[in-house]
Write a protein that binds this DNA or RNA. Sequence first.
DNA 1: AAGGCCCTTCTTTTT
DNA 2: GAAGGGCCTT
Length: 725
Amino acid sequence: MDILKHLNSQQKEAVTSDAKQILVLAGPGSGKTRVLTQRMAYLIYEKHVNPYQILAVTFTNKAAREMIARVKKLIHAELEGLWLGTFHAICARILRREADFLPVNANFIIMDADDQEALVKRVIKELGMDEKLNNPYSIHDAISRAKNNLLTAKSYTAKEYRDEVVKKVYVRYQNLLESTNSVDFDDLLFLTVRLFEEHADIHRKYASRFEHVLVDEFQDTNLAQYILLKQFSAFHHNLFAVGDEDQSIYRWRGADYRNIQRFEEDFPEAHKVLLEQNYRSTQNVLDAARGVIDQNPVRTPKALFTQRGTGQAITLYQAVDDYDEAAFVVDTIQRQMSTGEHQGGDFAIMYRTNAQSRLLEEAFLRAQIPYRLVGAQRFYGRREVKDIISFLRLVHNPEDELSLMRVINVPPRGIGDKTLIALQLVSQQKGISPGNILLELGEKGQESALWQEFSNRGGFMLADFGRMLVRWRKLAENAPLPELFDLIVQDTDYHEYIETAGEIGLNRWENVLELRRLAYEFLDSGLTTFLETVALVSDQDTLPETLNAPTLLTLHAAKGLEFPVVFIVGLDDGWLPHSRSMDDPEEMAEERRLFYVGITRAKDRLYLVRAEQRSTFGSFSSTYPSRFLEDIPENLLVRQGMVLHSRSKPGSEMRWESVAKQGPSTNGNKPIPHYKPGMRVRHPQWGEGMVIETRLDNEDEVLSVIFENEGIKRLSASVAKLEIL
DNA sequence: AAGGCCCTTCTTTTT
DNA sequence: GAAGGGCCTT
């Protein structure tokens, strides 16, 4: 039977096992996704399990989509009724169906990270606490952790003063969520667990349906998710988990790789399979990865091997500074693309923090090489995108106060502090939510009993906005989403608003159009689905699949992906490992796993890059090489770039290959600055501009020029054909 | 009410 | 080196 054809014996063992609980410990590149998809195909095709009775959980929507496609291909059939998605998406689906038993109704809004923090901030203010002393981020973090450990506000125990603060905020925070018909990310899981605990009949309904439960990336489940898995499989007890302790990188989000050990304790009969053959990387890459991960104390030892041969040496490039780091990456890519050795999509550049992408992006722009940037936050966190989504959320759920407050005066429509205070006051007195007050004013205008509660001017302004809201809601009832989208943009003059905002170089309107394009994909499914999808997108979901270009992404976002050529940049102590992880051994171990994940993404070629100096907000500071670099056997490495100076450890004899820079400007001439700040110049594409800064970078001159229509651009004098005016 | 200016403060990772 | 907050002026 061809479903099993391309499997090795360990994989086959996992796919066809008759055991009820199966734990597959799968090293990187060992065919974990393949095992998962073939297992599903095997169950359906061979064991005649109805897809309707299968539940599979992945970590990203992208992984879910890919998995569905692969299973379909294997069995040449549709997968009617199969449930496959992220924990959050699956829980949202259940909660909407069973909303009768929840503190919110089926139209609930899902709060994203920004919303959550804003809400916490609001509560802190409301309770008269000092924001400086009670960092909203960390309080929200504590609340989130509590929820992931299944602690309600009531059951949250306060041992120290800080816990009391958290508890107080938690109570009010949860109240606000309920009264505005919202849930946060963590509630999706927590409410489902409680729903099952408190309603045996509902629990039975789902548990008896799901004859087989499968889960990917099991090492990154938190307590709530682990309990959910047990609940889902409580009737048939068929639980198939795939994971790898060494790739656990979400501890800070409540994930606990010890769930793997817990699984073995909870299900002593479980069948355990180790996948150790790696099909992805060369031996050199695997040896480097192993050198790094072997330093972690608590782990199941795995003997990863490959038949792909030794492969090329790993390049360790030491840059002068972070500009040089970016230049090295882009030069190397440019060279390998021009020789035809690789195409754009073969490359990935990974870093620890999102901020590190900036210089890389600029370098790619300068070299005129398109690139793909992975990161949902970068799009959905944009002000204009959040604004439009807030309007839509308001249409969907007028009680969503956070959205209302966000956009009630965007663009400015004369609703200021005074009017808002009045609105809050009336809302409290009458027990009507601000959104519903607006709707009432919008519908009845001066006829409304509420009219007299407001000042003349305030009343008119609020009623104006209310009228728009009423109109939008009416349209939303039967018109397709893009039509609603357009009406909102039109009614609010949003285009004009962002175009006249006077910010240079920001293509805000393009982001709005991009969001509109996205809305088109929801012609049939409508507003609710759109908002839910938007709330639950993961970073990896934003990877433009069709563009064959180098990919920029964080190490976290890299999990589960692979690339022929991988650059890991910023290998300096304080960046990787990150400075925030320095004083906790558990966090340090996680940083190491993060590096391990990065290394093992590489199929053929691995570049490790660090910079002797980095600009951390404005000022340059020197760095030390990442401590993890010491754990890579020297014989795997070829060192390039600048020579380590006195700060390197005495006695560590290192071979450095001095390489001529092969940028476009290698001509041996000593550079003389040609440009001065204040000069007027003309660029062939961008037109006239003024030089605001120049600096000599290796053999080239780097200019910052402000263009009339393009804003500030950084360019290299040797590449940009500038004309001095 | 709104916009401009200067100040600080901060930057992990994300479903 | 950006973004938000506070304070000023119009």
